[in-house]
């Protein structure tokens, strides 16, 4: 069973790459960051977890997708300020500039440079391509400067570059992340419980411009509901209760439907019930949706995959099934 948490392997791997690069005499920084498949929960939450407190944060719980990601290589330059990146990657440029400012000023540091992004994360459908690029970039610049960043520090820099960022950089635990404040509100546990997630694109061909999206405005009643969902998710992750986790994801999906409705969600709900799944999660800033199954429901999930395909919806992921059955039908940027 694939483990959905990834416990810091990323950073270790990057350090090794760096050492090799240095030995070859190539001074550059390398960073990597995974994709995600939207959120298990997204809403507005009271800071201390009780609904009667007044300060609230928009926050989310990301469903990470570690087999896809972005790799950034930072090629330093002493000649010019700023970063030459691919022109359309405005957020990457901002992230690199901010990271340079953060680590700059030391002897021998770069004044600027070029960021080269290699990514297999689909764009514009809510799988975190942008945060993945940004996080990989921050890590690459940090790597070049030999700086170790905690996941929270990466998160803060990513939010500064992006305004809102998901929590894929917090890769050693499951967190409720205030995606506009760069703040961890709560740590639920070291990893998500084993489960199967069958992902699909509910609106193939449509791209969502996350920069143009208005933030959700949840009323007092909804904030109260999100408090209850947060408590349920706390239990689901602590006890490995996929059924309860699925209920939380479904409730979050339904509550947020009015902000970015997913076409054909009702059909997917019907499929979920028919095949014995336990919940539906979505990307709140994209078009992907995931049907959640218990970890031992492999056959049901595969039958359901065929049914989703028959609806004409491309499969985006099959989390929790072994490599031979994992499909990547449409994972081209």
């Amino acid at each position: 069973m694939a483990d959905l948490g990834f416990k810091g392997n990323t950073v270790r791997r990057l350090r090794e790459v760096h050492v090799v690069a240095a030995e070859l005499g190539v001074a550059q920084g390398v960073g990597w960051a995974p994709a995600h498949h939207g959120e298990l929960l997204q809403g507005t939450f009271a800071d201390d977890g009780t609904t009667s407190e007044r300060r609230t944060y928009r926050a989310l719980v990301t469903l990470p997708l570690p087999h896809l990601g972005s790799r950034a290589v930072f090629h330093p330059s002493q000649d010019h300020w700023g970063v030459i990146g691919t022109p359309e990657l405005a957020k990457v440029r901002r992230a690199a500039v901010r990271a340079l400012r953060e680590f700059g000023g030391r002897p021998g540091t770069a004044k600027g440079g070029q960021i080269e992004i290699t990514s297999d994360v689909p764009r514009g459908i809510g799988m975190g391509s942008s945060t993945s690029d940004v996080t990989a970039t921050i890590r690459a610049v940090a790597d070049y400067h030999g700086v170790f960043l905690t996941p929270e520090e990466v998160g803060r820099l990513a939010v500064a570059a992006e305004c809102a960022s998901d929590s894929i950089m917090i890769d050693d635990r499951v967190v409720l992340f205030a995606h506009r404040d760069g703040r961890v509100l709560e740590t639920f546990g070291p990893a998500l419980p084993p489960m199967i997630v069958l992902g699909c694109d509910t609106d193939p061909g449509r791209e969502v411009d996350t920069l143009a999206m208005r933030p959700a405005e949840h009323d007092d009643h909804e904030v109260a509901v999100f408090g209850v969902l947060r408590a349920a998710l706390r239990r689901a992750i602590a006890l490995g209760d996929v059924g309860l986790l699925g209920r939380v994801a479904t409730a979050s999906t339904v509550l947020n439907e009015r902000y970015l409705p997913k076409p054909r969600l009702a059909e997917l709900h019907a499929l979920l019930r028919k095949h014995g799944g336990c919940g539906i999660q979505v990307a709140h800033s994209g078009t992907v949706a995931g049907l959640i199954f218990p970890p031992d429901a492999r056959d049901a999930a595969l039958r359901c995959r065929d049914a989703v395909r028959a609806m004409g919806l491309p499969i985006t992921c099959l989390i929790g099934l072994d490599e031979t059955t994992t499909e990547r039908e449409m994972v081209t940027a």
């Binding site: 009780t50 609904t51 009667s52 009643h221 209850v228 408590a231 239990r235 689901a236 059924g243 309860l244």
Partner: peptide, 17 residues
């Protein structure tokens, strides 16, 4: 009625479904 969300929170955290 809204104030009882805190009681529901406790129930779902301690007892689940």
């Amino acid at each position: 009625p809204r104030s009882y969300a805190s009681v529901a929170e406790l129930m779902v955290e301690a007892l689940g479904q």
